[in-house]
Nucleic acid binder design. Structure first.
Lengths: 190, 190
DNA sequence: CGTCGATTGGTACAGTTGCACCATAACGCT
DNA sequence: AGCGTTATGGTGCAACTGTACCAATCGACG
C-alpha cells in the first residue's frame, strides 16, 4: 500500500462539506466544484473518492445516516442500563427534534434530499429519519393497546421537527408538548 | 390594451409546469428551459411573465399556495354551514395529508422548496402548509384546556404527511390514526 | 535502487445554465 | 391609417456544469 491515507477520514471530510452546503441551500448548491471549495480540496479529489456526483450525494447521505445513528445510540446509551420505558421513549422521540446543531443539520440535509430521492424507490429508504427499528421499539415501550398512540406519537415528533426548523415553535415548547403526551400515556390508570 | 391575453392564465399554466418538475425531481430540475419545454411555450415567455428564475420559483410558489388554499376552503365549505366541531377539525387535519393528486403535489412542491427558502427569513412563511389561521382555528375547536392537544394534533398530521409521501403508511391508516385521536379528544367525559 | 500501484493535480471539453439584447408582430386607440 | 403599447420570438454570451483524460508524484515493497 503506497501513500497511507485514511480513506474513510477523507470521505467523511468531504461528506461534511456536502452536508453544510445542502443544509444551507439545498442539493443544487452541492455542485462538485463548490463542495471541493467548501472542503478545501481540489475538485479532482471528489472524483477519486466518490466517482460521479450522484455517487457523491449518495455516499454523503449514507455517511450522514450512520453518523447520526451513532450519535443517537450514544445519547440513548447515556441513559444508563435498562432505563425506564418512559425515559427511553422520550429520548427516542427527542432524536427527531433539532435540539442541537448536529440533529438540526441532519434533518435539514434529509429535507434537502427528500424530493430528489423519493422518485427512486431504491433510494427512498435512505431519507427517512426514523428507522423501522425505532418504530418497533416505540410500539414495544407502550402497552399493546396503545399501538395507535405509538405511531401517532412518532408522527407528532416528526411534525414538530418541521415546526422547529421553520422557527415557528421553540424547542422548549416542542419538548413540553411531547412530555404532555407522555404524561397522558403513562398515567397511572392507563 | 393591445393583444388581449389572459395574463393570469398564462402565469398559472407556466407555474403548473414548475410544480410538476419540482414535485418530480426537486428545484434543480426546474430550470428555465426545462420549465418552458414542460409548459410547451418558448423559454422567452417565462422571462416576460416572471422575470428572473428566482422570481419564477417565487411566483410559482405563491400561485400554488393560493391555489391550494382555495381548494382547501372549497372542501371545507362542502361540509355545509356550521358543521360540528369534530367534522370541521377532521377536515382541517386531512388537508395536511396527500389524499389526492392535488394535495400530494402541493406537499411535494413545498418539500422541494423547503431548504432553499428556509435560509431567507422573508421567504420562510411561504413554505408552511399550515397557515397560522388554521392553527388558531384548531385551537378554538377544542376546549380551552386542550391547547396542547391541538398543537400536537397538527404536528401529528404534518408528520403523517411525510410517512404517506414516502409510502411508509397507507392513507387509510393515517386517517384512522387521526380519527382515534379525535375519538379521544371528543370523548363524552373530556 | 527501481518499480509498480495508489494518489494527486491540472486541464480540456461538450453541454447546460440564466439572462440580456434586438427585431417584429399583434392589437387598441386616436 | 398611423402610432404606441403589449407581447412574442430568436439568438448570443459568459459563466458554470459534470466528467474524461493525461501527467506527475508519492510511498512501500522487491
Amino acid at each position: 500500500m503506497p501513500r497511507q491515507v485514511d480513506h474513510e477520514e477523507r470521505r467523511r471530510h468531504i461528506a461534511a462539506a456536502v452536508w453544510r452546503l445542502a443544509a444551507a441551500g439545498g442539493l443544487e448548491d452541492a455542485t462538485i466544484r463548490r463542495v471541493a471549495a467548501e472542503a478545501g480540496v481540489p475538485a479532482r479529489q471528489l472524483q477519486y473518492y466518490f466517482g460521479t456526483r450522484e455517487d457523491l450525494l449518495l455516499g454523503a447521505l449514507d455517511l450522514l445516516n450512520q453518523h447520526g445513528e451513532a450519535e443517537a445510540r450514544e445519547r440513548i446509551a447515556a441513559l444508563g442500563p435498562a432505563p425506564e420505558p418512559r425515559r427511553l421513549l422520550r429520548s427516542v422521540l427527542l432524536e427527531l427534534l433539532p435540539l442541537d446543531e448536529g440533529r438540526r443539520r441532519r434533518h435539514l440535509v434529509h429535507a434537502a434530499y427528500f424530493v430528489r430521492f423519493m422518485a427512486d424507490e431504491a433510494l427512498r429508504d435512505r431519507i427517512r429519519d426514523t428507522p423501522p427499528e425505532l418504530e418497533d421499539l416505540v410500539a414495544l415501550l407502550l402497552p399493546e393497546e396503545h399501538r395507535d398512540e405509538a405511531e401517532f406519537l412518532l408522527a407528532g415528533a416528526a411534525g414538530l421537527q418541521g415546526q422547529l426548523l421553520l422557527g415557528h415553535m421553540s424547542a422548549h415548547r416542542a419538548v413540553e408538548l411531547i412530555d404532555r403526551q407522555l404524561d397522558r400515556l403513562f398515567a397511572p390508570a392507563g
